[in-house]
Measured scan of single mutants.
Amino acid sequence: TRVETATETAWISLVTALHLVLGLSAVLGLLLLRWQFPAHYRRLRHALW
């Protein structure tokens, strides 16, 4: 049971790290898009909202 718990903890930390990385890359990508294509971003936002 001790090994299982350790594996579970490792998986949880791995998944958390993955989610953090994905979230950060998504935010960075959005910022980059907004910085590179302001007109396109505004049009996209206008279409979405």
Rank of each mutant, 00 (worst) to 15 (best):
V15R: 07
L24T: 03
G23H: 00
R45L: 06
P38E: 05
W11R: 06
R45G: 04
E8Q: 06
R45I: 06
L33I: 10
A47M: 04
R2K: 14
A17Y: 04
L28R: 01
Y41K: 03
T7D: 13
H40G: 11
R45C: 04
E8T: 14
Q36R: 14
I12G: 08
A17Q: 04
Y41E: 04
T1I: 14
L14D: 07
A17R: 03
L33K: 01
L20K: 00
W35N: 08
L22S: 06
L24N: 01
R43P: 03
L28N: 02
Y41H: 05
T1E: 06
A47N: 05
T7F: 06
L28E: 00
S25F: 10
T16G: 13
V27L: 13
E4T: 07
E4H: 07
R2N: 05
A47R: 09
E8C: 08
A6K: 09
H19D: 03
L28Q: 00
A26R: 02
G29K: 03
P38R: 14
T9G: 13
T1A: 11
W35H: 14
P38N: 07
H46T: 10
F37A: 10
L28V: 10
F37R: 05
V27E: 01
T7G: 08
L32C: 15
V27W: 06
L22K: 02
S13M: 06
L32I: 05
A10F: 10
L24Q: 03
L32P: 03
T1M: 15
F37C: 09
Y41G: 05
R2F: 10
H19T: 14
T5K: 00
H19R: 03
A26Q: 03
L24K: 02
A39K: 14
T1N: 04
T7I: 08
W35Y: 07
L31V: 11
T9F: 11
A26M: 06
V3P: 00
R2V: 07
V15Q: 08
L14P: 06
H46N: 15
A39D: 08
L44S: 03
V15P: 05
L31S: 09
H46Y: 14
F37Y: 15
S25W: 05
L24G: 10
L18Q: 03
L14G: 07
L22M: 12
A6Q: 12
L20P: 03
V21R: 00
R34S: 06
L22H: 02
L18H: 00
F37M: 09
L44F: 14
L18T: 06
A47I: 06
R45W: 06
A17C: 14
A6L: 10
A17K: 04
W11V: 08
V15H: 12
T16D: 00
T7K: 14
W49E: 01
S13E: 05
L33E: 02
F37K: 05
V3G: 00
L48F: 04
Y41S: 07
T9Y: 11
I12A: 09
T9I: 13
P38H: 06
A26C: 15
L48S: 02
T7C: 02
R43H: 05
T16P: 04
T1Q: 08
R2H: 10
F37P: 01
R43S: 10
G29H: 00
L28Y: 04
S13K: 10
A17F: 07
E8P: 10
T16I: 15
V15S: 08
T1P: 02
R42E: 09
G23A: 15
A17G: 12
V27F: 11
R45V: 06
V21N: 01
V27K: 01
V21M: 15
W11N: 12
W35D: 02
G29S: 10
H46F: 08
Y41T: 09
V21H: 00
H46G: 12
L14E: 05
L44D: 02
W49R: 01
P38S: 11
W11T: 10
V3N: 00
W35L: 12
L44H: 03
G23E: 02
L18D: 03
L22A: 14
L18I: 13
V3D: 00
T16W: 13
R34N: 03
W35K: 15
L18P: 02
A10L: 13
A6T: 14
L24S: 06
L33A: 05
W11F: 10
P38T: 07
L30H: 03
H40C: 12
L30G: 08
L18K: 04
S13A: 11
Q36K: 12
A17M: 10
G29R: 00
T7E: 09
I12R: 11
V15W: 08
Q36V: 13
G23F: 15
L20E: 00
W35F: 13
I12H: 12
F37Q: 01
L30E: 00
I12Q: 14
E4W: 07
E8L: 06
L18M: 13
E8D: 10
A47Y: 06
F37W: 11
L28G: 08
L44K: 02
R43K: 08
R43Y: 05
V3E: 00
L28K: 02
G29L: 15
Q36S: 09
R42M: 09
H19S: 13
T9M: 11
L24P: 03
L44M: 15
A6Y: 07
A10H: 05
W49M: 04
T5S: 01
T16N: 04
H40K: 15
L14A: 07
V15M: 15
A6I: 06
S13I: 06
Q36P: 03
I12N: 04
A47W: 08
F37N: 03
A39E: 15
T9A: 09
A39W: 07
W35S: 08
W35T: 07
A17E: 03
R45A: 06
R42H: 07
R45D: 01
T5V: 04
G29I: 13
W49F: 00
L48I: 12
L33R: 01
A6D: 10
R42P: 04
V21E: 02
W35R: 12
E8H: 08
H40W: 08
W11I: 10
H40E: 06
L14H: 06
A47F: 07
S25C: 15
A47P: 03
Q36A: 13
Q36W: 11
A47C: 05
L32K: 02
F37I: 07
L30N: 00
V21F: 15
L14N: 09
V27T: 07
L30T: 04
E8M: 06
L14Y: 12
L48G: 01
L20Y: 05
V3W: 00
V15G: 11
Y41V: 12
L24F: 14
R34F: 08
Q36T: 09
S25K: 02
R2P: 10
R43G: 07
R42T: 09
V3A: 03
S25G: 08
S25I: 12
T1S: 12
Y41C: 15
H40L: 09
F37S: 04
T5F: 04
A10S: 14
R2E: 12
L30R: 01
R42K: 12
T5R: 00
A47E: 04
R34G: 09
T5H: 00
A26E: 00
E4Q: 08
V15N: 08
V21S: 05
R34E: 01
H19G: 14
